[in-house]
Design a protein around this nucleic acid. Sequence first.
DNA 1: TATTGTTATACTCTATAACTATA
DNA 2: TATAGTTATAGAGTATAACAATA
Lengths: 133, 133
Amino acid sequence: MIDALVRSAFDVIGVVSAVAAAHELSLTQLRLMAILRDHEPTMSELADYLGLDRSSVTGLVDRAAQRGLLTRVPHGEDRRSVRVALTVDGRVIAARGEAEIAGALAPRLTVVPTADRRHLADLLDSTLQPPPR
Amino acid sequence: MIDALVRSAFDVIGVVSAVAAAHELSLTQLRLMAILRDHEPTMSELADYLGLDRSSVTGLVDRAAQRGLLTRVPHGEDRRSVRVALTVDGRVIAARGEAEIAGALAPRLTVVPTADRRHLADLLDSTLQPPPR
DNA sequence: TATTGTTATACTCTATAACTATA
DNA sequence: TATAGTTATAGAGTATAACAATA
């Protein structure tokens, strides 16, 4: 059971990494962009989401910004702070990445009987820890 | 369904990475040691298993060997080739790591009804691609 | 004083290209 | 010639420590 969960995890992460690599992105860069699809976080919030030190996020954001995938937006209220947002280009690539991940994983799910899918998804979700804040 | 699979994968990999980090190992180093529990591969075979370039494996093995976790063993037949094997220390740490991963994931599985576990494991395994050779 | 973000620095991980030794 | 492994090199990713600007 635990073995199956771990094997599946490595398998899925492998697929996601391959999709990222196809866009010359690291797994972390793709995660970063996925987060930015729904949020416009500060650097510190981003560090919390990703579980990284703030100084690491500086580099990640630098490299992605240099490629035109995202931008730093002045915060306004707190002048120490910046918000990070996808550019139009970044949004296109993020959407494409998500679609490719779905496309790559879909064939594996054809072996799961349709009747089982909802159940499997629920079981998997129930095993997730509540995200730490 | 796909979302649940991906979320679960990141969650599980996070747990495995944390266990690795607790032993000051990277995810790859821990994977390497897990492979060596059951195999005594050549450097090239290791590169295939891990999906890395041979030159990357040289560095991984160097660092782990320097910590006394594994050793290069002369192959005998083909004098170009070496085999990689865990040391006694390495075997202890690999076993401990596996136990800690199981221990860290077990609490999450308590929410899965006992009757569903076999079924969930089978479903997850059925989604795995046959490993590329 | 505390927080936000960056910089300086160092190490791991990874790949590409070139090399040595052996086959 | 081909294969096994290493070395040289370069860049990404990461953390720690120290810093400047702002709160």
